[in-house]
């Protein structure tokens, strides 16, 4: 979705605020929202990509006005309602215990080097980011669409967020770090030597 969340390259948002001795949570309720979120995710009724799409689907004015954990609270309320949890639709998933939480939170997102999933592109190859504008979830930033870069690294095989978010299958494929010269992204006034590396799935790319 071409939403407010896709801010790469936007200007005029003001300086990045930074504080000394920044706490992990600024209020106790933020920690509770973090825990509620983990407990709901543990029920496996939606995945991380579904969750991200729900945040992207916030009305732009709400997205900008809400704080980070206010967004988490809002979209968890929405997901709970949408998946019928209040009406007793929960699967027979055991409740997340404090003991199991540490292990769960310390776990990353699974990747693999599954040899059955062949890479479409090779390191050093020139590629163009496809110009796609899906109304659904995508992690292809707008500022990169149509731009030409070079495959810098093959990260291995991951679930494809554009389908996974909508529970349409993982469609696992290779993810690459793709190097774009800043002049390709931002024009001739950008510096000559700087670059941006963007992680991209096979389906975001075509040969250039």
């Amino acid at each position: 979705m071409n939403g407010i969340h896709d801010m790469g390259g936007m200007q005029g948002m003001g300086p990045v605020p930074h504080e000394t001795d920044e706490p992990v949570f600024h209020a106790e309720w933020e920690g509770r929202v973090f825990a509620i979120n983990a407990a709901l995710r543990a029920m496996c009724m939606w995945n991380l990509d579904t969750w991200r799409y729900q945040i992207e689907s916030l009305a732009p004015v709400d997205y900008l006005r809400l704080t980070y954990y206010e967004r988490w609270l809002r979209i968890n309320e929405e997901l709970v309602a949408k998946h019928g949890l209040l009406a007793g639709a929960a699967k027979a998933a055991p409740a997340l215990t404090a003991a199991a939480a540490a292990q769960r939170l310390g776990r990353g997102v699974p990747s693999s080097d599954d040899p059955a999933v062949k890479p479409v592109f090779a390191v050093g190859e020139h590629v163009r980011a496809r110009n796609i504008n899906p109304i659904g979830h995508t992690r292809l930033p707008r500022y990169a669409r149509g731009k030409v870069g070079v495959i810098a690294r093959d990260h291995g095989v991951y679930a494809f967020p554009d389908t996974n978010a909508h529970l349409e299958g993982e469609h696992r494929q290779h993810v690459y770090s793709v190097r774009f010269a800043v002049r390709e992204l931002w024009g001739d006034e950008a510096t000559a030597k700087d670059s941006v590396y963007i992680d991209m799935w096979d389906d975001y790319l075509e040969r250039a």
Partner: peptide, 15 residues
Amino acid sequence: GDDVEVRVWDSTAEL
């Protein structure tokens, strides 16, 4: 400085 190359990493995947 201008002599330093800046590389920005946009973490768009699970890396």
